[in-house]
Amino acid sequence: MIRYTMFLRRKSILHSIDPRSKIILSLFLFTVCIFFNNPIYTGTLFFFLIISLKIFGKIEIKKTLSFLKPMLPFVVMIMLLWILLGSEKGNVIYQIWKLKIKDVNIEMAFAMGFRVLAMILSTFLLLMTTEQRDLVLALVKMKLPYEYGLTIAIALRYVPTLASLAVSIMDAQKARGLELEKGNILEKIKKYIPILVPLIVKSIQLAQELAIAIETRAFGKPNRTFYRDLKFKFKDLVFLSAAVIFFVICLYLRIKGYGVLDI
């Protein structure tokens, strides 16, 4: 089964607070990740996030790790680039031919690896604990025009529909002898035309019907109301204050030069 949303239904504090608070929290955490390049600091941040997700979001550590797994090749690549192309300073600890592996670069590689992981997690934190509809509603409440919010919501809604449509089209063409795996790159690209054309045609058709359906539901009438509401509660205040304090402490540490490697 393909998952189309990262949202995990749990009963937790993180799930219950206002998505607007979570958007701000997520932005804070993301920024803090950029402050430091010391592996101890970024590493701590990363583990702190995993444990917070467990405590405040009731999301099992195993689940969090499974979500991070697809990101791993990307992280490893960043680490390798740092090891091989990093700073000229530092002591060589290993040398193969002309490639010198230096201690500071290993340190930087870990710092950056953890930084990227922590950045990913600060976004995941929002996506794993917030329903898509609440996210869109939060954006609308944060003064995004409703039409844009509706557009985002519709786009997200039709991802699974179009994905399963693509599978049906592929099946139909395979039954007509289409073999996608065979041939060189140019031939392979050409083979996707019989899949893309029906997909595009049907999407346009769907969009036209959709426009009619939206009109039949009185869209465009002035003075729209909203059934779902976001309420900024006392616990949001507590959560946001904690986030601000955390952010200020990190900012202070950064200004004082803590957690920054000198290279």
Binding site: L165, S168, I169, D171, A172, Q173, A175, R176, I193, P194, I195, V197, P198, V201, K202, Q205
Partner: peptide, 14 residues
């Protein structure tokens, strides 16, 4: 074995 799928729109492209 030739399988004719239910929805012709899912395969017309030419």
């Amino acid at each position: 074995i030739g399988f004719v799928f239910q929805n012709p729109d899912n395969q017309i492209f030419a």
